[in-house]
Write a protein that binds this DNA or RNA. Structure first.
Lengths: 276, 276
DNA sequence: TGAGAAATGAACAAAAACAATCAAAATTGT
DNA sequence: ACAATTTTGATTGTTTTTGTTCATTTCTCA
């Protein structure tokens, strides 16, 4: 789908970028997307491997786990990368220039961050996610406020009283909230209390609340409910499971489903996903 | 598409602009779009390369300072890395387990963060620096509080009212403050107002204030003074310039100088992983 | 565990891009 | 307007990159 890239260095940068985003690439997909032969891709991967930062595998390559301060820059979606991109692109249509957005932590919101930067829109974003904030701050068009608080190293995001108190100063147009679980009866749920509390606070500080959830999250119910479905203005998802969607619609929720362009990242090599 | 540009300087500007936007260009496309021969484009690229900012490649060129996600791969090796490590190791001797530390942004404090993680000491650290916080959060022994606020992309650190107000809740044992400039008469100085204000706030919230400064910073005076020398409990530096040090000592400051020579480094058993 | 499929690396030939050179065209200074 | 200088485009031989083929290795799954 990407235009043919005939510049070897630029092509390698493209590969590295995709590795950052998806964490893994396949020789086959790269050769198809970049319009070159698989041999060329293999040679590229070898070069990139020399420079560190990736590890070659059969069928492709995976990004090395970023260490130390570089974690903050690593934009990576472990799974459903294509679905998350599709959701993010769909969500982009809801955003107007000069708006103020809230975004909580989560890989779907990372995907949205990429689209925000690409859009060159002037925006203000408030987020507890360190990697979302670091990514967004690279754009001269986006003003980023990072919510303070204790840093959880698993997610590299802040939460707790400091974050909530700082959040209370803001008034946003849209809150983009990435779900951990969403059901018609239990609403939006998380497995950590502080995530749920912060999500609820975000909901109350934005005119519009939009939930982003891959099909994996729909029907999932975690321990703590952040808020119920009637607080949700819109759900953007790639889920096409009619049963679940029907339930959610009957709970009074608007739902926007987006197509994930099939074929693209159809088959990632299976054995390498859990490398650490 | 583009009308034929007959002015070489204007054409080069067009090329540079496209490099800025797209990150990469190809000789073929430029020759077609600008209506000149490929040889001309190659000459243009060579000229632009001389001025820096781009790197020539087969097939075209790419922007030298890769933007966006690519920065993650380019871990900038910092100036005076050896001196900063030596200062950080020296500062480590001043820290006891279970203390609460304040650390402002700056590469010397990043070096200190490495030592903190390596030490396996139980600590609490409060910092506005995103990369310092991300680095420290790797350690299970360190509790990290990230100060909230607007994120400056040059330094990837927060500052401003939110950070100060959050900071006011903490009471720390030691504030490690990385200097931008330090002189006996003007005290600790910064080029940005908000950095200076935050440094002053840190000073007031810690029992002990320790300044970390490489020799490059000593004698340097920037626009804004954070606080004067009498607020400083100790200066840790690699500077051996007797004149400057004498001035600072006369201003009532304790000074600890550390050796940076390779010999000293070898004798110390710090085997930090230096992971890359 | 083993057969079959997929992916890999090496070798080589084709294609693309390159630098160097030189002459034509354009620009500049007088 | 004219000569000097710079810029440009075409041609050449050379270098780099790419695609293809094929023997070998690795993976899959029955």
């Amino acid at each position: 789908m990407v235009s043919k890239i005939r510049n070897s260095a630029a092509r390698r940068l493209t590969i590295q970028r995709q590795l950052l985003v998806d964490g893994a690439v396949t020789v086959e997909a790269l050769a198809r997307d970049l319009g070159v032969s698989e041999a060329t891709i293999r040679r590229d991967l070898s070069v990139i491997e020399q420079e560190g930062a990736i590890r070659r595998t059969h069928g492709g390559a995976i990004a090395e786990a970023p260490r130390g301060a570089d974690q903050a820059f690593a934009i990576r979606e472990q799974q459903d990368g294509e679905a998350k991109r599709a959701i993010a692109r769909s969500a982009m249509t809801l955003i107007a220039p000069d708006q103020t957005l809230l975004m909580n932590d989560g890989s779907t919101n990372l995907a949205l961050a990429r689209e925000l930067v690409a859009s060159r829109m002037r925006l203000t974003v408030i987020t507890p996610g360190v990697n979302i904030a670091a990514y967004l701050s690279e754009s001269p068009d986006i003003t980023v406020y990072l919510l303070g608080g204790q840093l959880r190293h698993q997610t590299l995001s802040t939460s707790g009283g400091f974050a909530e108190s700082m959040l209370s100063s803001f008034n946003a147009d849209i809150a983009f909230i990435a779900a951990e679980g969403l059901t018609a009866t239990s609403g939006l749920t998380y497995s950590y209390e502080k995530d749920a509390v912060l999500a609820a606070a975000m909901n109350s500080k934005a005119k519009t609340t939009i939930i982003l959830a891959t099909s994996r999250k729909i029907g999932q119910r975690d321990r703590i409910t952040a808020f119920s479905t009637d607080a949700i203005d819109l759900l953007v998802t790639d889920c096409h499971d009619t049963k679940h969607l029907q339930d959610l619609k009957e709970a009074g929720m608007d739902v926007e489903t987006c197509a994930t362009d099939a074929g693209t990242v159809a088959s990632l090599p299976t054995n390498q996903a859990k490398s650490r």
